[in-house]
Structure formats: structure tokens, C-alpha cells
Design a protein around this nucleic acid. Sequence first.
DNA 1: TATACTGTCATAGTGTATTATGACACTAAA
DNA 2: TTTAGTGTCATAATACACTATGACAGTATA
Lengths: 125, 125
Amino acid sequence: MDFNETKNIFLQIRDWIADQILQGKIVAGEKIPSVRELAVDMEVNRNTVMRSYSLMEEEGIIENKRGIGFFVAADAKSKLLKMQKQAFLNDELPMILHQIEVLKLNSSDLQILIQTIQSNDHENQ
Amino acid sequence: MDFNETKNIFLQIRDWIADQILQGKIVAGEKIPSVRELAVDMEVNRNTVMRSYSLMEEEGIIENKRGIGFFVAADAKSKLLKMQKQAFLNDELPMILHQIEVLKLNSSDLQILIQTIQSNDHENQ
DNA sequence: TATACTGTCATAGTGTATTATGACACTAAA
DNA sequence: TTTAGTGTCATAATACACTATGACAGTATA
């Protein structure tokens, strides 16, 4: 995995797992990679992965079965949807709006953005 | 100034100055606060401000007159517009699109975003 | 010339993310 | 019971952002 230099690795690992869950690539009850395994895969220290998992456990996204590993919580997806949606609308969107205003980006520049939003209008649930 | 914990302070100071220039609050040729002055204002070490200014000098946004201070470069605004626009479209937008898709955000959720974009359509230059 | 500003450099200390490694308890399966 | 897989904790080392502080040179002004 290639990490962004501006964001902490343990947070990027959390985001990556969360993304897998939101996309349905990992479902409720399913086991996620072991701390050691993911550390090797991502070429990262196991303590760093451990920190990501501990964070997600606090957030109620994953649960631990001692001696076995970590598993996706039953309500992980709905919880993540709620959390991330709120985070996006409250924290990220204001900064995005500000950038668009200052850079005077118009419909032409952001054509793909508008299309993406509109394609979500025709979906249910 | 209140800093974001997830981003380096010296980068946030750079962004803040860049924003002032893009908004026209500081114009070409104008002097920006001295390293020591801004450090006190922002309750930050002067070395941290120095690092921001050195970065902006490398980027050609500001220029130094020895013994006097830093001044906004003649082409700072156009250079910033070009740099930031490219950075936004190439680096930030893809991640924003991904979030919108995964979280299934629609026109209702992002009403204000669409409005902001459209209001830029009616501006020239 | 003296004073008070500018930026600049050097040094040392603090906090924290990340790494490296070893040790231990729990669980499942051979 | 042994073995291999889980997570967990403790320790030390490295890297880097940030702070604290002192010293020095250039510039403008009284």
C-alpha cells in the first residue's frame, strides 16, 4: 500500500478498512486480516496496525475474539455510513466549498463531480 | 489561529497566507507580517513561521528584501491560482468523488455544493 | 552613531509517530 | 500435549515537527 505522507499511517489503515466495509468487500461478521498478517502485507510495523485496530474497536466497527482475531461488527456498515457522512458534511465540505469559491471553479471544471452526485440521485437506500 | 491537528503547522500557515493572496486581502508587492510578528500573533515559534516563508519563497509566491522583510511576488496570485487549481483537480477531487460514491451522497445532501459551483458559472475570469 | 527593526543560523530539548524486538496468554488443530 | 496461529504489552531506537533561545548581519530611522 502506498501511504499519503501528510496523514498518519495508522489513520490511513483505518480508512482503508472502513472503505472495504462501506464498499461491501468485507461484510458483518467476517474476519479481517490478523495484525501480523496485515503488517507484513502493508510493510508496516505490527504495532502500527495494532493501533488502527484498537481505534476501530473503540469506534465499534470491529470486535475482538481473544486468541482468534478481529471481526467486522454487526452494525459496522450503518455506523460507518453515519459517522463518515457527518464527518464529510461538517468537516470536509466547508473547506471544499471555500476552495471552489476562491479558485472560482465552475461547472466545466467540476463536470465529473456534478455527474457523480446526480448518478446517486437515482439510487434507493 | 486555531490549527488542524492532522496537518503540519508550517503548511497551514502557508495555506493561510496563500488564501489571503487569492482573496485579494494581500496584493502583489505588499509586505507580509515579519517572521517574529506572525509567530507572536499565531502563538507559534518563529522557526516554524520561517519554515513556511522559506517554502513560499521556493514556490515563488513571496520574495525577500534583506533586512526589511518578505513581500508578495508580482505574479503570486496567478501562480497560486494555477498551482492550487491543479492540486485540487488532480489530488483532492478524486478522493472527494470516491467519498461521494461510497457514502451515496445526493443532490439533496450536497445542495450547497451545487449552488456554489453554479454561482461561479456566472462570473468572468 | 545608536536603536530597533528585519531575516538567518545554530543548538538543545520535547512530544509523538513509527519501527524493531522479545515475551506472554489465549485458541484451534494436529 | 505440541504446534501454530491469534492479540497484547513492554522496551528501546529512530525520525521529524515544533519549541526555546541566543547570536549575528543587513536596513531604516532618529
